[in-house]
Structure formats: structure tokens, C-alpha cells
């Protein structure tokens, strides 16, 4: 795709302006809040971000193929409720992880079948599956409660050789995507998202490509639900209700086109970083109350607006010599 790009463009995976914004916001946050750069502050930040990071990764993959997926919040809800009701019982921690991932996979596969194979509209189908999943979560656990096994909590929120597990997961996500996007399937994802008709004509299997994307996304949501459970230590069927919009915001801020074909997981991770640090930064500089909402909205618009400028500049720069 992209030819030899300078190092600073590779930094954010095509989301350079977003990356710069993130660094700027981190800087402001650190200036106003001295504890920001302590290990306590950093691990808090990573733990706040990792759930959204996992979910946004899943969403990114689907969005790259040119489809929508709203079911993420629903899967997170089911998995959270499952972790809170099962992990203390027979399945144990690892068993719960397996079951939770299986559920994510299953929902992803159902979405995939309806969208990739039957050709239904992804936005509408996943509104449906979102509502169904939220319903299932409410049936499984009608009110907040349950308990998540201590092994899961310490396993996810703790650290390994002094590095927070959440940080390791972040890096793992970025590396996994770097690997995946260079596979045959990964290349197909971008092609299908950019132009499905041309992809079909050139022999790519569009349904299969999309199918795998939805299933992988489901797995990511499942993992997000599991990590979420570890973060909050309990189950709450309504907990992910407001999660959805942040997922999309992270993806878009990270420079992934919602029309498909452009962007990537690393950008979304930067987007997650921006959303997480934004909350901390607004608090640190003393923006309180209602104005948080206003700033939230404006920063999102600004982030994307500047994000749009970079391909524009690149296009102009490319055109000039020609």
C-alpha cells in the first residue's frame, strides 16, 4: 500500500496527527498532574484504556472491510455477566476465559453469517444483535452482582516483571495486527473495504474476508468483556451501555475511515489513548462539570479534522512532482 513513508508517519500507523495530539495531551496532563508519570499513574491509565483498546481493535477490523458493527457493547455485557457468575464456580478462571471467548466468537459468527453470507446490512443487523445481547445479559444477571475470581483480577490488572499486563496487551495488539495485516487475509481486508466490486472481480473472496473479520471482532469483544470484568471485579448487565460510542470515536480518531479500506489498529489504539487521556487531562487542568462534555465533543472533532488533513497534504505532496 503505502510506499516508503518517513518514520514519523509510521509512528501512529497513519494516524500521525492523532499521535501528536496524544503526546500533547499527555504532556499537558503530566504538567498539571505530577503523579501522572508515576508507575501508579501509568498503570491506572493503561488499565483504564485496555478494555476500550481491545473492543476498538475488533471494531477496526470490521470497519476496515467497509462494514459496521454495533454488537460489541452487547458482547462485552454478556461476557462481563458470565465472568461474574461463572468464574467462582466450576469453570474456573481459564474455563471462563474460554467460554467468554467462545461467546464472542459465536456472536461474531452469527453477525458474519447474516452480513457476509446473506448480505444483510451490517448496521441494522448489529443493532439487532446488540439489543439481543443486552437482553441475554439481563436474563443471565438481572441486577448488578456476582463476583469475579481473584485470579482473573490479579492476572489482568497486575504486572509481569514490573510491566503492567495492560501495557503488554497493548503491545501485543499492535504486534498482532502488524502481523495479520500482512497476511493474505489482511491485504484482502483493505482491498475489500476500499472497493468491494473491484475486489470481487479480481478474484478475492469478499464474503470469506468479511466473515473472518466479524469473527475476529467477536473474539476481541469477548476478550474486552473478560478484561472489563477483571477491572471492575463484578458483573453489571448495563455496564457497557455507553461503551459503543467511545469505540467508534476511538476508531475514527485513529484515522480509520468509516467507509472502509483505510486506517488500522495502531491508529485506533492511539484513538483509545486520546479518549482515555482526555478524561484525565480535562480533570487535571480543572475543566469540571458540564464543560467536560463540550470539550470531549470539540476535541473529537478537532482530532478527526486534523487527521483528515494528513492524507490531504500527502495527496497534494504526491501530486506536485507529477
Amino acid at each position: 500500500m503505502a510506499k516508503a513513508s518517513p518514520w514519523y508517519r509510521r509512528l501512529g500507523g497513519g494516524a500521525t496527527p492523532a499521535m501528536l495530539l496524544l503526546i500533547l495531551m499527555l504532556g499537558i496532563y503530566a504538567v498539571y498532574e505530577p503523579s501522572a508519570l508515576t508507575s501508579f499513574g501509568i498503570s491506572n491509565l493503561l488499565n483504564n484504556a485496555i478494555v476500550l483498546a481491545l473492543a476498538a481493535t475488533g471494531l477496526t477490523i470490521v470497519v476496515l472491510t467497509g462494514e459496521f458493527d454495533l454488537s460489541g457493547a452487547g458482547v462485552v455485557a454478556i461476557c462481563n455477566v458470565m465472568a461474574a457468575t461463572l468464574s467462582m464456580g466450576a469453570p474456573g478462571s481459564m474455563g471462563t476465559l474460554g467460554l467468554v471467548l467462545l461467546v464472542g466468537l459465536l456472536v461474531g459468527a452469527i453477525n458474519a453469517y447474516l452480513i457476509a453470507i446473506l448480505g444483510l446490512q451490517s448496521l441494522a443487523v448489529t443493532i439487532g444483535s446488540l439489543i439481543v445481547c443486552q437482553g441475554i445479559a439481563l436474563v443471565l444477571l438481572p441486577a448488578p452482582g456476582g463476583e469475579v475470581a481473584e485470579a482473573i483480577i490479579s492476572g489482568v490488572t497486575g504486572d509481569l516483571f514490573g510491566i503492567p499486563i495492560a501495557g503488554i496487551m497493548f503491545v501485543a495488539l499492535a504486534l498482532a495486527w502488524t502481523f495479520l495485516k500482512n497476511t493474505r487475509w489482511g491485504i484482502a481486508v483493505y482491498a475489500v473495504g476500499a472497493d468491494p466490486v473491484a475486489s470481487r472481480l479480481s478474484g478475492l473472496n469478499v464474503p470469506t474476508t468479511k466473515f473472518i473479520a466479524f469473527v475476529l471482532a467477536g473474539l476481541c469483544y469477548g476478550a474486552a468483556g473478560f478484561v472489563y470484568s477483571a477491572e471492575i471485579g463484578s458483573g453489571d448487565p448495563r455496564i457497557s451501555d455507553s461503551f459503543l460510542l467511545y469505540m467508534f470515536a476511538a476508531v475514527a480518531i485513529g484515522g480509520t475511515s468509516l467507509m472502509g479500506g483505510r486506517g488500522g489498529v495502531r491508529g485506533s489504539l492511539v484513538g483509545v489513548g486520546i479518549l482515555t487521556v482526555m478524561q484525565k487531562m480535562l480533570f487535571a487542568i480543572g475543566v469540571a462539570e458540564f464543560y467536560t462534555n463540550i470539550f470531549n465533543g470539540l476535541i473529537m472533532i478537532a482530532a478527526i479534522f486534523f487527521g483528515q488533513l494528513s492524507p490531504l497534504v500527502a495527496r497534494i505532496a504526491r501530486r506536485r512532482p507529477a
Binding site: A252, L258, I294, G297, M300, I301, Q308
Partner: peptide
Amino acid sequence: AKLPPFIMTLSSGTTFFGI
């Protein structure tokens, strides 16, 4: 400004809710 509608309307919703 060529912002994606999804994000433009989401952000303006958040902003105006705040206002």
C-alpha cells in the same frame, strides 16, 4: 470539513448536550 458523519454528529451531540 469532510468529517465522517458518524463522528461529526456524535461529537456535536456530545458538545450540545454539554452546552
